[in-house]
C-alpha cells in the first residue's frame, strides 16, 4: 500500500458510492437532452412545412387554373365548370385551416402531395432522383475533409513558407464560386485533357469533377477554421508532454492535436451538408448529372408547387438530421461535453 494512498482517500468521496447514483442521473439527463433535441427537430420541420403550405396557398394565381393548364400545356382562363372537379379533388375550396391540417396529416404519413406536372406523388418524384444527389453531397463533404486535413497536418506550424502558402490557398479556395470552378474543371479535365466524361453519368468517373467543384471551396472554409485550432493545439502543454515521452512530430499531430482541432470543422459541416445540397443544383446542371437539382429547376420553372415544397421540406429535414449528427459527433470527439 502506498504511503500516500490513505491520505488521498480522505479527500475523495468513495467512488463506488458516488458513481452509481451519478450514472443514473447521467442516463436521465442524456434521455432528457435527446428528447429536447428531437422535439426541436420536429419543430423545425413543422415550421418549414407551415411556411411552404402558406406559400402554396397564398401565392397569387388560382391553383386549380394552374393545375389544369399544366395538364393540357395551355395558358388560358378557365371557366368555373372546368375548375369545379379540380377544386373538388384537391379540396382547394375548403377553409384554409382545414387544408392546413389535412396537409400536416398527409405530411405525417409521408404524403407530400402530387406533382402538377408529372402526375406522380411528390415523394416518388424525389425518391427517384435523391440517390445521385446524396452520393454527390457526401462525396463532396468527404473530399473537403480529406483535402483540408492532409493540407493542415502537412503544413500547419511547420515551415513558415509552406504554411503561409497553404493558408493563402485556403482563403482563395473558400472564395471560389462553384459555378466558375465547375466550368473550369469541366473545360480543363473533361474537354481539353479528356480525363473525364463531359456528360457525367452516375458512375465514379462522372462523380469526381462535380464532387471537386463542391468540395474545394468547402475545403477552404473548413481549412480556415481548423488551421487556427490546430495551430493553437500544437502549443498546448499536452502536445509538449507527448513529445517529452518520445513521440515524434507526426504522432503528436495525428494522435493528439488533430482531434482537438476538428470540433469547429464538425460544426461547420452541419451547415455544409445542407448548403451542399443546394449547391448540388449548380454542379448537377454544369455536369448534366441526374439528381434533385434538375428536378428542382424544372419544378420552379413550371410552377410545380408541390414538388418545390417537397424539396424545401426535404432540405429542412437534411439540416435537422445533419445537426443531430453533429451533436453525436461532438460528444464522440469530446467526451467532456457529455457530462458538462
Amino acid at each position: 500500500m502506498s504511503i500516500l494512498e490513505t491520505r488521498e482517500t480522505t479527500l475523495e468521496t468513495d467512488p463506488d458510492q458516488a458513481s452509481r447514483p451519478r450514472r443514473d442521473r447521467h442516463i436521465f439527463t442524456g434521455l432528457r437532452s435527446l428528447g429536447t433535441r428531437l422535439l426541436s427537430a420536429v419543430g423545425v420541420i413543422w415550421a418549414a412545412a407551415t411556411f411552404t403550405f402558406l406559400i402554396q396557398s397564398l401565392l397569387p394565381g388560382d391553383r386549380a387554373t394552374l393545375l389544369l393548364n399544366q395538364l393540357n400545356g395551355q395558358i388560358q382562363e378557365r371557366t368555373a365548370a372546368e375548375l369545379a372537379p379540380i377544386n373538388e379533388k384537391y379540396g382547394f375550396t375548403d377553409p384554409l385551416i382545414v387544408q392546413y391540417f389535412r396537409f400536416l396529416g398527409d405530411l405525417a404519413t409521408g404524403n407530400l402531395g402530387t406533382s402538377y406536372q408529372l402526375h406522380k406523388p411528390v415523394i416518388e418524384v424525389i425518391g427517384d432522383q435523391i440517390a445521385p444527389t446524396i452520393v454527390l453531397t457526401f462525396t463532396s463533404l468527404l473530399i473537403a475533409w480529406a483535402i483540408c486535413i492532409v493540407v493542415i497536418v502537412g503544413t500547419a506550424k511547420r515551415n513558415r513558407f509552406f504554411s503561409s502558402v497553404a493558408s493563402g490557398l485556403e482563403a482563395l479556395a473558400a472564395g471560389l464560386p462553384q459555378y466558375w470552378l465547375g466550368v473550369i474543371l469541366l473545360v480543363v479535365f473533361a474537354l481539353n485533357l479528356g480525363l473525364f466524361p463531359v456528360v457525367g453519368g452516375t458512375g465514379i468517373g462522372g462523380l469526381l469533377l462535380p464532387a471537386l467543384t463542391l468540395g474545394i471551396p468547402l475545403a477552404g472554409f473548413l481549412g480556415q477554421v481548423i488551421r487556427t485550432e490546430f495551430e493553437s493545439g500544437m502549443d498546448q502543454p499536452f502536445a509538449l508532454t507527448a513529445r517529452m515521452r518520445g513521440m515524434g512530430d507526426t504522432g503528436v499531430r495525428l494522435r493528439h492535436v488533430l482531434r482537438h482541432s476538428v470540433l469547429p470543422g464538425i460544426t461547420l459541416s452541419g451547415w455544409a451538408l445542407g448548403s451542399l445540397f443546394s449547391a448540388a443544383v449548380i454542379a448537377e446542371s454544369i455536369f448534366t448529372r441526374p439528381g434533385l437539382g434538375k428536378v428542382l429547376v424544372t419544378a420552379v420553372n413550371s410552377r410545380d408547387l408541390p414538388v418545390v415544397c417537397g424539396i424545401v421540406i426535404l432540405v429542412a429535414v437534411i439540416y435537422v438530421v445533419a445537426n443531430l449528427l453533429v451533436d453525436v459527433a461532438y460528444t464522440l470527439i469530446d467526451p467532456r461535453l457529455k457530462t458538462s
Binding site: F238, L240, T241, A242, R245, M247, G248
Partner: peptide
Amino acid sequence: SERLWRQVRGKDIGFILQDALVSLDPL
C-alpha cells in the same frame, strides 16, 4: 539526432509539467 532524442525522451528522461488538466490530453 531527433530520432535518437525520441529514444531518450520518456525512457531515460521523464518530464513533468505543471497542471495535468492541460498537460495530459484532456480528451
